[in-house]
């Protein structure tokens, strides 16, 4: 049915138009600053559709590109995608080789065309223990990082090969190495020494294929009080931009309707308190705003 409708003229244009308009609508409200994606289900997708494993990964990449577009259209500042876990090195050699060549191919494409990076001003960063990657892949990734390093509007963290425990260990090791005075070590110090460095606080984590696990992805960031976790029952390649728009709308709605709901639940009254009562504080902040503008 959907395929048949899409054969009509102009459907693609209308769809594209609706998508950008919806994104602009979302952009006018609260939007998470940093979204994390765990791309799960490429292989199951391949199995279900009886296609090659490699094709499954390819479909996953296509889906990622579409979703990133929506994210940046909606005004998300930073996106992290879990592309490859250190544990994934346990997979068959053939699949690893294929994944590496996919990385290389896609990053080269990005380097040559640079469409996503240029239109949205995306800075690509490779987050993780890069030393574990083969040399040629590393080189391409470095080039991509180098080429986009001056973009400032948005950040794309490609986590490969990454695990959060390795990340935290790396941060602690670097702090020990730098010999920072123990009085100056705070949560922020560790946060800054993580591979991802100073990025906005993660406020939404999306995991697909109905798995209720974090699988060692950004644990330090995800436990934050403001980070919501969304688990979807679709496989990653089936994750449509419309679905993402709905999730973002829901997130914005929850933020508006409930405020910082975890902080409220825990009776932590730092700043988030004044959205439930005390109109006086809101008027003062408004007047402050007027002063600043």
């Amino acid at each position: 049915m959907a395929d048949w409708i899409s054969t009509f003229p102009l459907t693609q244009h209308i769809l594209g138009f609706t998508k950008t308009q919806l994104c602009r609508v979302i952009h006018s409200g609260p939007v998470p600053e940093h979204i994390g994606f765990i791309m799960d289900g490429n292989r199951r997708f391949a199995k279900q559709h009886k296609i090659q494993l490699e094709e499954g990964h390819n479909a996953g990449f296509e889906s990622m590109a579409k979703l990133l577009e929506v994210c940046y259209d909606c005004g998300v500042k930073s996106v992290s995608v879990f592309a490859f876990s250190i544990e994934n090195f346990n997979r068959s050699n053939r699949e690893i080789d294929w994944l590496m060549s996919l990385f290389k191919k896609k990053f080269k494409q990005v380097l040559e065309h640079g469409d996503l990076c240029e239109t949205y001003g995306v800075k690509i960063r490779v987050v993780g223990n890069v030393k574990l990657l083969p040399k040629d892949v590393r080189q391409v990734l470095d080039e991509a990082e180098e080429m986009t390093k001056n973009n400032t509007r948005a950040i794309l963290n490609v986590c490969a090969p990454y695990t959060s425990r390795d990340d935290m260990t790396h941060a602690i090791r670097n702090i020990v190495k730098e010999g920072i005075d123990s009085k100056d070590i705070t949560e922020d110090t560790i946060g800054k020494h993580l591979y991802s460095g100073p990025v906005p606080k993660m406020e939404l984590l999306i995991r697909t294929s109905n798995v209720y696990r974090l699988s060692d992805f950004m644990l330090w960031e995800v436990v934050d009080l403001d980070c919501d976790i969304e688990i979807l029952d679709v496989l990653w390649p089936e994750f449509t931009p419309l679905r993402l728009i709905w999730i973002l709308l829901k997130w914005g709605f929850n933020r508006t309707y409930y405020g910082h709901r975890t902080a409220n639940l825990l009776n932590l009254n730092n700043g988030s308190d004044d959205d439930s009562h005390s109109t006086s504080s809101s008027t003062t902040s408004q007047s402050q705003l007027k002063k600043t503008t």
């Binding site: 959060s164 425990r165 935290m168 974090l214 699988s215 060692d216 644990l219 330090w220 995800v222 436990v223 934050d224 009080l225 980070c227 919501d228 976790i229 688990i231 709901r261 975890t262 825990l266």
Partner: peptide, 12 residues
């Protein structure tokens, strides 16, 4: 679903 600063190391 929110993890309320649960020990991050122990969530793997």
């Amino acid at each position: 679903l929110n993890l309320q600063s649960y020990p991050p190391w122990h969530l793997r």
